[in-house]
Amino acid sequence: TKIIYHMDEEETPYLVKLPVAPERVTLADFKNVLSNRPVHAYKFFFKSMDQDFGVVKEEIFDDNAKLPCFNGRVVSWL
């Protein structure tokens, strides 16, 4: 699974690849690859589809939650 993530106000996003199927990747999986960053200091928002509003940034805080996936990749903002 490819996860593209944006940090603070930085213009260029980062990319990490996880050896987990897109439909199975969790917030804990993502946090594990960010071990060099203080993950407890961040809120995690993900590109998600809402039936009422369309594409939104959804906050996910449960480490066991599966991450929303679009075209085989996850897009996140920290």
Rank of each mutant, 00 (worst) to 15 (best):
Y42D: 00
R73Q: 15
I4V: 10
P38M: 09
F46W: 00
K43W: 00
L34P: 03
N36K: 10
R24N: 10
M49R: 13
E11M: 06
S35H: 11
L15A: 12
Y5E: 05
I60L: 08
D62A: 07
K17D: 14
R37D: 05
V16K: 04
E23L: 04
V20C: 08
V75S: 01
V55D: 12
Q51R: 11
E23W: 07
F45I: 06
C69N: 11
I3E: 02
L34Q: 02
F53Y: 08
K66S: 07
L27G: 05
I60F: 00
I60S: 02
F45K: 02
P38S: 13
G72D: 08
K66L: 12
V56D: 11
F45A: 03
F53N: 15
V75Q: 12
Y5F: 12
V55W: 12
E10G: 08
D52V: 09
F53E: 15
N32G: 13
L67P: 04
L27I: 01
S35Y: 11
K17W: 14
C69Q: 09
K17M: 14
F61L: 12
D50L: 06
V25I: 12
I4N: 00
H40G: 10
G72Q: 04
L78C: 08
W77C: 00
F46I: 04
D63Y: 05
E58L: 15
I4M: 06
L34S: 01
S48H: 11
R24L: 09
C69K: 08
T12N: 09
F45S: 03
Y42C: 07
Y42M: 13
I60D: 00
V39E: 07
A21K: 12
D52A: 10
D52G: 13
Y5T: 00
D62S: 09
T1K: 05
H6G: 01
Q51L: 09
P38A: 11
K2M: 10
Y14H: 14
K43H: 09
V74N: 03
V16R: 01
V56S: 15
G72V: 02
G72K: 02
I3S: 01
G72S: 04
I3K: 02
A65F: 01
P68T: 00
L67V: 03
R37Q: 07
A65K: 05
K2Q: 11
E58K: 15
D29V: 04
D52Y: 05
M49V: 12
F45H: 03
G72R: 03
H40D: 13
F44E: 01
S35E: 10
F61R: 13
Y14R: 15
S35A: 11
L78V: 10
V75P: 00
K17H: 12
Y42P: 02
I60E: 01
P38I: 13
F30Q: 04
E11L: 09
Y14A: 07
L15H: 15
N71I: 04
E59I: 01
P19V: 03
P13Y: 15
R73H: 14
T26D: 00
D52R: 15
A21Y: 05
M7P: 01
K57M: 14
R73T: 07
L67G: 03
C69P: 01
H6Q: 04
Q51F: 04
H6A: 02
E59N: 08
F30L: 13
F30C: 00
N36T: 13
S35T: 14
F45Y: 14
N32D: 12
D8V: 06
K2S: 10
I60Q: 06
Q51D: 11
K43T: 07
R73M: 13
D50R: 15
K57P: 07
W77G: 03
V39H: 13
S76L: 06
V20F: 05
R24Y: 08
A41K: 09
P13G: 09
G54L: 10
L34R: 00
F46T: 04
H6D: 01
F30E: 04
L78E: 05
V16T: 04
L15T: 15
F30Y: 00
T12A: 12
D29F: 02
C69S: 12
V16S: 05
G72E: 02
D50F: 08
D50W: 02
V39W: 07
K57A: 13
F70N: 05
P13K: 09
V56Y: 15
F61S: 13
F70E: 11
E9T: 10
V20D: 01
Y42H: 03
K31N: 03
L78G: 03
T26L: 03
L34W: 03
P68W: 00
M49T: 14
P19C: 06
F61G: 12
P19Q: 11
A65N: 03
F70K: 11
P22C: 06
K43S: 09
M7T: 08
K47L: 06
E11S: 09
T26Q: 01
V56E: 15
N71M: 07
E58T: 15
F70Q: 08
M49L: 10
K43F: 00
V75L: 12
E58P: 00
E59F: 05
R24P: 01
E11Y: 04
V39C: 10
R24Q: 08
V39G: 08
T12H: 14
V55H: 11
I3D: 07
G72F: 03
H40A: 10
Y14K: 14
L78P: 01
P68A: 01
V39I: 14
H6E: 00
N36I: 12
P22A: 05
L27V: 00
Y42R: 05
V33D: 00
P38C: 07
G72P: 02
P38G: 15
